[in-house]
Design a protein around this nucleic acid. Structure first.
Lengths: 246, 246
DNA sequence: GTCATCTACTGACGGATCGTCAGCAACTTG
DNA sequence: CAAGTTGCTGACGATCCGTCAGTAGATGAC
């Protein structure tokens, strides 16, 4: 490990290469843009290289087990060198983190679906089913990155734990709101905690989506799985039994 | 993912409630005992050393992030050398795998609970609640090893994927049987697939148990979480709303 | 065009970890 | 105690990581 560095604000870049103060600011993203490892602001060419590296990472994360992702491979495949990679990202995780952040921005749509759509009667079940489908589709689209998120979170990487929260929380809160909103019209037990119920639902969705292929391996059809989840979501949110014919 | 598998469609569990025999035929376990890396059969002293190594692994897996578990540390801490470790285990995972297998033998109790207890009326809810509690307790007791199992499975390690199945399958099948058994007395929809529903329930239990700490971090009480899950389990198995007062 | 001064890139290296193997130590047996 | 078997480990080659000094490329002034 490197010794602790004095966190110093970057002086104008006019210093000779003799004593280069390496300032690794909290994130590598500045107010207005990003910084390379040496603190300089990348220009056109630099950003193009960074982007190329990102795309290559995105591609290789699909085809390679996470633990086998080597910086060397990504860099070489992108037509550059490992040292260049480290110019823009402290490690492979950091690159994937950027991909995860881009992905996270698409999540609120799911929450909106929960808030916008009706939860009454038959339409309520349709909402539940649509949510489950959308969730599964989302997970499928981003499965490579999401697997790394799960993995890194389980390994205790706080950067990914944070992203995971950003991902799942909007949906959890939306569901909790929906449940709370049903307190009036439906008869939920008094001791029901909406956030707990919502969290459980999201945990279910996330784990099933993540192990989708495990289910299929056991001969369980995805249709049946999603239908089961839709019913559970519907019942948990509304407190009503789902319509029987569907 | 994996190439298309011959999906031998699981016959709708008309199978008898036969107990699942746990055949723990791992690679390094012979018909009569174990073999060291060089093929020799360990004697008294050798097995003692192996055991010591195992215990040390079990201890360190609790205190150290999985990825930071070094063979050197385990070996030195156990008062021996890295080379000796490799005499008995091909890698750290292999040692943990043994721990996981020991753990897996305790699981059928949960399945038995599902099969033995009543699912009718109030007692049915109690069964669900007891199952959830037992599951959470099990996960808590073995959380260190289970986290590695989840982790290694996510990383694509087949040895652990297998163990994970051995762990979750008995319970899933037991739940599926219970659901199937309710077809007569209760009014489940015709298109309900018991295995799918059971799989969803187990996925929910596993993920919530695994992220228990995360729930608490968000201020969600474990009591509320378990109650939510108990209700979901009860409703999914019986098709009935749970008793309101509880 | 050439020089000055940036930015961008990389070969090469020190450090760390992994898993192996030849050989020494300890124990058992006759 | 000599021979044979089992158990242990120091030392080593191989591999991967992240850094840094220094080269190459771009840009702009004159």
């Amino acid at each position: 490990m490197s010794p602790a560095r004095p966190t110093d604000s970057l002086p104008p870049s006019a210093a000779p290469p003799a004593a280069v103060p390496i300032v690794a600011s909290a994130a590598d993203v500045d107010e207005e843009g990003l910084r390379a490892a040496d603190g300089r602001v990348p220009g056109r060419r630099g950003r193009a290289t960074r982007q190329k590296l990102l795309e290559q990472t995105a591609e290789m994360v699909h085809s390679t087990p996470f633990r086998d992702l080597k910086v060397v491979d990504i860099a070489r495949q992108a037509g550059t060198s490992p040292a260049t990679f480290y110019q823009y990202f402290p490690d492979v995780e950091a690159a994937i983190l950027v991909l995860a952040e881009e992905m996270a921005q698409q999540i609120p749509e799911l929450g909106a679906m929960v808030q916008t759509r009706s939860w009454k009667g038959r339409a309520g079940y349709d909402t539940a089913a649509a949510l489950v489908d959308a969730f599964m589709a989302f997970w499928e689209t981003h499965r490579a990155v999401l697997r790394v998120v799960d993995l890194a979170t389980a390994e205790g990487d706080d950067r990914f734990r944070k992203i995971r929260s950003q991902l799942l929380n909007p949906l959890t809160r939306a569901l909790a709101d929906a449940i709370e909103g049903q307190r009036a019209t439906s008869k939920h037990p008094d001791d029901l905690d909406p956030m707990a119920a919502a969290g459980v639902l999201v945990a279910m969705l996330a784990n099933v989506a993540g192990h989708r292929y495990g289910f299929e391996f056991w001969g369980i059809r995805t249709v049946d799985t999603t239908r089961s989840m839709a019913r559970i979501v519907h019942t948990t949110v509304t407190g009503q039994r789902p319509p029987t014919d569907s």
